[in-house]
Each structure stands twice: as structure tokens, then as C-alpha cells.
Amino acid sequence: MTSALPSLTTIGFDADDTLWQNEQFFRMTEEHFAELLADHGEAEQLKSRLLEAEKRNLGTYGFGIKGFTLSMIETAIEVTEGQVPASVIEKILAAGREMLSHPIETLPHVHDTLEALAGRYRLVLITKGDLFDQERKLAQSGLGDFFNAVEIVSDKSRPTYERIFSSHGDGPARSMMIGNSLKSDVVPAIEAGSWGVYIPHDLTWAYEHVDEPTAAARFRKLQHLGELSKLLKNLD
């Protein structure tokens, strides 16, 4: 005799590039950064140096636009051997400010899906990054009322999901996490005992790339958020 799976009561959602566009603004700014420093290296080389700086600085600055901007400045200083003009630093800072004020564009199926699930499940927004910026994006998105709780965390790991789904739900076993990052949203949620639903985005930061956990019983992959209701029906 096999025991039935525990019923799902809580659903966590990633924010950036799951509910609204985000990575495209980093890519656009990255291109601008490479143009500003074109005299000091090929575009791909400059982007690679920037990525190295971002990874190196995560423990100090965390995730988000402010850390990205500081990493751009640091890379500019490195590749110019300390000779970067003040005018270039000024343009990098301006690019960072522009990112922080960019209008929020929600992704397809987001509003309808959240509206359909609100009241049926406990919905929790679980996002990492700068507190001020994430709060701004949530407010501008108009999605805040759909969520029973919002957690803005410094990073996402197995303990993160164990804590959140125990605090805001009935534990990881009765919870599901949905996001575009295998590394941050899916794999650690599955490790915590939750369902992990991967919804790929056309643009995903290189730091977030890991292999799909296809052997995991609680791993699912959808093409877009509009397929979630069907998945939930099949799990019931």
C-alpha cells in the first residue's frame, strides 16, 4: 500500500523573471558598460571580467542592482589599471540609477494565474536582492494583494525554504516553489522537500545555471505560468 502525497497548501513564487521582467535590463546595461570601455577590451572579455567581479562581490554586496553597479565600477577600475575617467564612472552610476527607476513589466499569464490561485492556496513571494528595490518593484507591479506573505532574502537555500514554508505554510512537504532559476528557486526547494517548478526565461544570469534535476520526483517544468493551473489539478 502506498500513502497519498500530502495535499499542497502553500505556493511560493520567485519575482524577477518569473513575475516580471528583470534580466533584460541587466543585459542592456552590460552592453552599455562594454561600449563605455571598448578601448580596453573586447565586449565579451569585458563582460566576463564583470561577471567575475559580480560573483566575487556577492558575499559583500549581495544580489541586486546596487551590487551590480559597484561591480561595474570595480571592473572599470581594474581593466583601465586605475585610469578610468570620472566621466565614465558618472555614466556607470547613471546607468545604475536608470535601472532602479525602470517601469515594471509583468510577464504573460501572471495576473490571471495569481488571481485564480489566491484564496485556494497560501501564496508567498520569495525573492532575493536589495530590499528597497524589491519592495519598489512589488508595489509597482500591482501584485502585492495576491500574496499572504512576502519574504525578501539575501540568498535562497534549503534552510531558506525550510524556514519560510514552515513559517507561512504547513511545512515544505505541502509546499511548492515556482521560478526561473534552477539554482535558486528549484533545486534548494526540492532539497527541502517541496515541489520545485521550473519556468525558463529567455534570459537567465550565468550564475544561476545548473542542470535540471530531472531525476527528482518533485521536479516539474512548464513553458509558462499559464500551465500552472493544469499542473496543480493533476497533482490533486
Rank of each mutant, 00 (worst) to 15 (best):
V88E: 11
D14E: 01
Q140G: 13
K156S: 02
S229Y: 09
P188S: 13
G12Y: 09
G193D: 12
L37F: 06
E227C: 10
P108Q: 12
S7V: 10
D17G: 03
K91R: 15
E23A: 10
G142E: 03
I73E: 06
H32E: 15
E208G: 03
S229Q: 15
D133C: 02
E78P: 02
L235W: 14
D133F: 02
L5N: 06
K66A: 12
N180S: 03
Q83K: 06
K137Q: 13
T106P: 05
A149L: 03
S3K: 08
A192K: 07
R163E: 12
A43K: 04
K233L: 13
M72E: 07
T29W: 08
D17I: 00
G226R: 11
E52L: 02
I73Q: 04
N148I: 10
S167P: 00
I65E: 02
G119M: 03
E191F: 05
E135F: 09
S87Q: 08
D202W: 12
G169D: 09
Q223Y: 11
D39I: 00
Q223W: 12
V84C: 05
A189K: 02
V197C: 14
G171K: 02
Y61D: 09
F25W: 04
A86F: 09
P108W: 10
A192C: 11
H209C: 08
S101D: 14
D211K: 06
A173I: 11
M177T: 07
F165K: 00
L93N: 13
D14H: 01
T160G: 05
P188A: 12
Q21K: 14
H109K: 13
I89R: 04
I92Q: 06
R122Y: 08
S141M: 01
L46I: 06
K47L: 09
A4K: 12
M72D: 05
F219N: 14
E81F: 07
H109T: 12
D39V: 00
H109Q: 11
L93H: 10
I92C: 04
S141W: 02
F26K: 00
N22L: 00
V88T: 15
K156L: 02
Y121V: 06
G226M: 08
D17N: 03
S167H: 07
